[in-house]
């Protein structure tokens, strides 16, 4: 940072005003994070950053610059995961300018002012580092959530001995069908179930793509000796399937999950009767 023409004033100001600048910095940042991170944690973070800033500004210490960037990236990543907004994250860095400027103004030192301008644009660059890390960390969080959702939304549950249930919810695209099919087939191997009830109550529309995926899943299960029943075929879905001309062939379809279960029980020779009072 120092330009060699005389001794730079800013490093000295950062050192002598350390306590005041840090306190003010902490104060500004705390306002924005409101309780989502403790004052003690934040103070530890900022103190570490401040020490690195001091070293970097003093000059001749390239290692400090690298460490500073790494520390900032780490903080941005954890902020992104904690659900802070990108501006809240960047403010943590930018606030150091405000805190330091107040010190510079107090001294009315013209050279310090001049150096502050350079310092300011240097901090802006650091702010961009936080932004970039924040954005990629957020993308990672979203990608993880999507994956979880994909798995979460395709559970295979046991309805009865030898009868599995596969409730489908939402849009059935190729990726999801693949997951459904794999999960179902795996469970069929594990359990040796004879029946699987695929429930489409939560699927808003059945078009040719969804139908094709369903048919493939049923065929694959059949090859493994399991019969599938498709349930949750509501009136509007039934009418659309007919209008599209989709043939489910000899695959059993039922209006409700209860009907499908009753059907599967009956085919397995299990009788469910109410208790009759004598």
């Amino acid at each position: 940072m120092s330009d060699g023409a005389g001794k730079a004033h800013l490093p000295e100001l950062l050192r002598s005003g350390r306590e005041a600048v840090l306190d003010r910095w902490l104060e500004v940042v705390l306002e924005g994070v409101r309780g989502r991170i403790t004052e003690r944690e934040l103070k530890a973070e900022l103190t570490e950053l401040y020490a690195l800033i001091e070293r970097a500004v003093a000059g001749g210490d390239e290692e400090a610059g690298r460490e500073l960037r790494a520390a900032l990236a780490e903080i941005s990543r954890s902020r992104a995961r904690q659900g802070f907004s990108p501006s809240e994250t960047a403010v943590s860095v930018f606030a150091v300018k405000q805190a330091l400027l107040e010190q510079v103004s107090a001294t009315a030192d013209m050279q310090a002012y001049a150096e502050f301008i350079e310092f300011s644009s240097w901090v802006d660059d650091l702010g961009l580092v936080t932004f970039e890390t924040y954005a990629s960390a957020r993308e990672q969080v979203i990608a993880d959530q999507m994956e979880q959702l994909l798995e979460l939304s395709t559970p295979v549950v046991k309805l009865w001995d030898g009868i599995l249930g596969v409730p489908l919810v939402g849009t059935l695209d190729s990726a999801r069908t693949q997951v459904v099919m794999e999960t179902l087939l795996e469970r069929l191997v594990e359990t040796g179930a004879q029946f699987a009830v695929i429930d489409i109550t939560g699927v808003p529309a059945v078009d040719t793509e969804v139908a094709q995926h369903l048919l493939k899943t049923v065929m694959a299960a059949r090859l493994m000796g399991t019969d599938c029943v498709i349930s949750g075929v509501r009136p509007q879905i039934a009418q659309t399937i007919v209008a599209l001309g989709i043939e489910f062939g000899d695959i059993a379809t039922k209006a409700s999950l209860a009907d499908a279960l009753a059907y599967a029980l009956e085919c397995s020779g299990i009788q469910v009767t109410g208790r009759t009072e004598a």
């Binding site: 808003p204 059945v206 078009d207 040719t208 509007q236 009418q239 659309t240």
Partner: peptide, 14 residues
């Protein structure tokens, strides 16, 4: 109606 909604939505999908 829900039936007609489903029909036009499915047509749109295709």
């Amino acid at each position: 109606s829900l039936v007609d909604q489903t029909k036009i939505v499915t047509a749109a999908s295709e």
